[in-house]
Design a protein around this nucleic acid. Sequence first.
DNA 1: CTGAAAGCGCTAACAA
DNA 2: TTGTTAGCGCTTTCAG
Lengths: 339, 339
Amino acid sequence: MATDEHRSLTLRDVSEASGVSEMTVSRVLRNRGDVSDATRQRVLKAAKELGYVPNKIAGALASQRVNLVAVIIPSLSNMVFPEVLGGISEVLEETDLQPVVGVTDYIPEKEEKVLYEMLSWRPSGVIIAGLEHTDAAKAMMRAAGIPVVEIMDVDGTPVDAAVGISHRRAGREMAKAILKAGYRKIGFLGTKMPLDHRARKRFEGFTEALAKGGVEVEDQEFYSGGSALVKGREMTEAILKRSPELDFLYYSNDMIGAGGLLYLLEQGIDIPGQIGLAGFNGVELLEGLPRRLASMDACRRESGRQAAEIIAARVNNEPTENIVELSPKIAFGDTLKRR
Amino acid sequence: MATDEHRSLTLRDVSEASGVSEMTVSRVLRNRGDVSDATRQRVLKAAKELGYVPNKIAGALASQRVNLVAVIIPSLSNMVFPEVLGGISEVLEETDLQPVVGVTDYIPEKEEKVLYEMLSWRPSGVIIAGLEHTDAAKAMMRAAGIPVVEIMDVDGTPVDAAVGISHRRAGREMAKAILKAGYRKIGFLGTKMPLDHRARKRFEGFTEALAKGGVEVEDQEFYSGGSALVKGREMTEAILKRSPELDFLYYSNDMIGAGGLLYLLEQGIDIPGQIGLAGFNGVELLEGLPRRLASMDACRRESGRQAAEIIAARVNNEPTENIVELSPKIAFGDTLKRR
DNA sequence: CTGAAAGCGCTAACAA
DNA sequence: TTGTTAGCGCTTTCAG
């Protein structure tokens, strides 16, 4: 009584079942080359009846082609990244390429590891968030000899190509809008995340533009972990207790901004008269709040789309732009006075 | 002047650079078998200097082992699924297995395609959301000869193993709690999604338990697409305009429930006195709203964890439970009277 | 239109 | 401790 050790079906099984050579079976299954309709039908029938699933590992090794695109992002729970992914999928679905996602949790070492792991499957391209990577990671990407698109930031030098917004500029423009609206006592609330380079760059652009207007950030508040909505409330309460003179609060993301907004409304504070608010990201999720928070769209979906398009073009040896800067627009909502 | 056609480094390159046989290089790189410390160092040095990244495709073909676990879920934008993924990663990180995510958009044909695509890479296991799949998909999973865990639902017959909550029971328990609190005129608001089997089962359990109490759902309202928060507002307004006698609204997810809550608070309606509310999922994101919506935890993270544990055990030929039913608890929050 | 032969880059199994 | 040999399942290439 032999143990029925499991073994996947192979081309050979289909070949034997259909009485056609492995080579021809392979051709049928890939729609390559000319095959008579009669044999094609026989092969298809046999493959279906057996329940044959081709082995891409063997196929990839033989053909030296892998239809995978490595997509490396910091987090899935941020809502921002699933949207980027949506843009990527949308475009890749029209090609024979497939995205494969890796998550870094904003940790450089983990990014390096994920990248290594993914490159070892020899993907056709890499889409990776941000321009900041370890030297080893950059070296790997350069050495891989495949198209690499860094997304969601263009403030820096990409390994190969980049698509995204300038966070420095985003910070500057929000600062200008705030000054123009007449606010002068400005507080900043954000994540305690030295590794979120994009948030840092926004802050830098923000303070720079304020400085040009002769204004400084009066007070700051940082958090990490926990429910962003709750943290937004708590931080807002804390910063206003400490600095009641503030007339504007700039939040590093919409979620904490929304928490702050809800808190201030409950306190009966006049928004945007007494205090103005703005966040960042243009999170659709927040439509439906009592007031629309001022924000700035980070062009997430579009970043994904364009990155995927660059990969797809490069895979076909078509020329592409190397740096695509997208322009986020300010949404004034109901929490930032318009001028 | 030869064109510098790109070619990945191979074991052979490392072998030549270090003067050690390919086999030994392979051993060093995989930490397998005994290798003298001297040669190990030489190999490591050579590999690092060259920037060698192993080719997992060849490795997998030769060893017939792939350390990938296919994870197939309906959507990434639902917040629910990233949390499941979190649980999976958490457990798999302690093994040498790696999750690979595929998304189906709730479309059975797409699920079938994604599954086929992933199985063709010969993963070590499959974790897939739900118990409803096309016959072809079920056949593929059975034929794959690898552990398969269906998650987030146990109302049905799994192909192999299942981990999750009973949505029928969840619906029943919420209905009982509502009746016990004294509400009698009940409205239901949900997604227009014939393919969301879990929402359907909750609804079935819900009406069943109401019926036992001699109560029927008085009115219903469905939506599709758009911002859930906004839809929650709109639907709530619509259903109450049509059926002002309602004293309880059961939402099929927390997001639309939150929209409804915000709307009703703005209308100055007494919650949970005049109208009670409940959602489903226990979304952390919503903490921080003016009131906490009554809800029911779907044990998302835990489902992910346990599914991953089953896969990991099976890969090592260890025995496991086949069906794990998790028990969601009602969170009464501030919108459902307690009795 | 179809088939046979020769690998793709690595590892299992065995030999030294 | 190290090396040799023979594939893994498929596709490329070249011959019918």
